[in-house]
């Protein structure tokens, strides 16, 4: 299954030199007239579509992330695969989100502060979604650290925030900028409903009634997490 060479570094050795060379080539390319035209075209493309791609990537991340937790239909290998897709699509979505912010600010459609400061406007909702998703992403990367810590359940609480941030991002996408086509709006609504139903199924399937023994031990914390087990006794 895994051919595993010895002492393989986490990032391949060739990655950094290749990236540096590509960056230099792109910078050099922009100095030429066709290069400048290509960059301008890329910018206007990102201006129009980076946000859309980020939103689609996020939706995919949400759906696959939820699917990855399923035990009733999926085998372990499918769940491992789903986790990998979840991670990859979330990274792609975040990359497009950053590109979306950068080109919008560079084009003068928004100020730098608008990217992070929440206000009750269409733009402000985007900032709120970005803040929350950034937090979810960073804590997501630190998952192993939470697992080693004293309160692994905290990670789940933080990760669940994405179920709030994602709809906010969708509302921002549909209300800010150009008018969305009807099928686009319906597509997002369908995603929201599907994920909502899947989430409901998960909660119903997975969260068990609180153990009476635990109830007795911890009478003041009848917590129900969306975790696969109630929280540990010692907490």
């Amino acid at each position: 299954m895994n051919p595993r060479p010895m002492d393989e570094p986490v990032t391949p050795k060739w990655l950094l030199p290749v990236l540096a060379n590509v960056a230099i080539a792109v910078l050099a390319g922009t100095a030429t007239p066709p290069g400048a035209a290509a960059v301008a075209a890329a910018q206007s493309f990102l201006l129009l579509y980076a946000g859309v791609f980020a939103l689609v990537g996020m939706s995919l991340t949400m759906i696959v992330g939820l699917v990855a937790t399923d035990r009733s239909l999926l085998g372990i290998r499918h769940r491992v695969l789903a986790q990998a897709v979840h991670r990859a699509s979330s990274m792609a979505a975040m990359a497009f989100l950053v590109a979306h912010l950068v080109v919008k600010i560079l084009a003068g459609h928004a100020r730098a502060a608008d990217a992070v400061v929440f206000r009750p406007t269409a733009l402000g909702l985007g900032a709120l979604a970005f803040d929350l998703l950034l937090m979810v992403m960073i804590t997501g990367l630190l998952r192993a650290w939470f697992a080693a810590g004293t309160r692994p359940g905290l990670w789940r609480t933080l990760h669940v925030i994405s179920y709030f941030a994602w709809p906010v991002a969708i509302v921002h996408g549909l209300t800010a900028g150009r008018q969305a086509a009807g099928w686009v709006t319906w597509g997002y609504v369908l995603s929201l409903v599907t994920v909502g139903l899947a989430l409901l199924t998960r909660v119903l399937l997975v969260v068990r009634p609180v153990d009476p023994v635990r109830e007795a031990l911890e009478p003041d914390s009848p917590r129900r997490e969306t975790s696969v087990r109630p929280t540990a006794v010692r907490r």
Binding site: E8, V10, A68, R79, V80, R143, F146, A147, P152
Partner: peptide, 16 residues
């Protein structure tokens, strides 16, 4: 490395 991956992937956050 694989062990670290298992820790990061444990759905129940039960491995460290």
């Amino acid at each position: 490395r694989e062990a670290r991956r298992a820790v990061a992937m444990c759905p129940a956050l039960a491995l460290r």
